[in-house]
Design a protein around this nucleic acid. Sequence first.
DNA 1: CGTCTTTGACCAGCGC
DNA 2: GCGCTGGTCAAAGACG
Length: 190
Amino acid sequence: MIGATRSCKSQRVIIQLECEENNPDDGFRWRKYGQKVVHGNPNPRSYYKCTNTACTVKKHVERGAENVKFLLVTYDGIHEHDPPAARGSTSGQKSQDGSSTSQDHNNHRTVRLGRPPSSSSASQALRLFPCSLDPPMDMTPFYITGFAKLPSLPVNQNHTEPKIERVIPDGTEVFKVIRDRLNLNFGLSL
DNA sequence: CGTCTTTGACCAGCGC
DNA sequence: GCGCTGGTCAAAGACG
């Protein structure tokens, strides 16, 4: 996991991560509907839709043009539903290219993008992330390494460009930052 | 049989 | 209008 930002228009979240997998598990199920080689990047971009019929969230995943270790995941929309029950895994359940099967990497974390399922105070806070960032939080860009699953990163709506500014070597630090930000902005103690 | 990926075709937006 | 590019559709096939 490398970085994240969100553009203010159309609830777009851009996450850059260092990941071997082409489709890292973010807790939701995705259906691939297209793949295309885009200009300026020799690596193909894959297009995914959320398999939830009521959910219109899309994402596209592409390898970095300069460094194929970097995976750029763009979420177009925010999940307004709970993550589906695990069916072994998500769309990466197939073992093609060893992608996110149920391979339990030691550093896998069951963090999700979108609305968290439970109703604890923590999830109440997290539920604020996707749709109503008010006041806006400067959660923009994180660098995380060692992630095989995508974390739930709230990001700043004011940013329109993926811009990486900070490096956080351990994913747990991210949650500390998130918690601190929630505490700061919402007065929530998680 | 259901789910998912692959892949070529198609469409829309944009610049010239 | 034309060509380029990004995004989407849908048929076919693979897989468990």
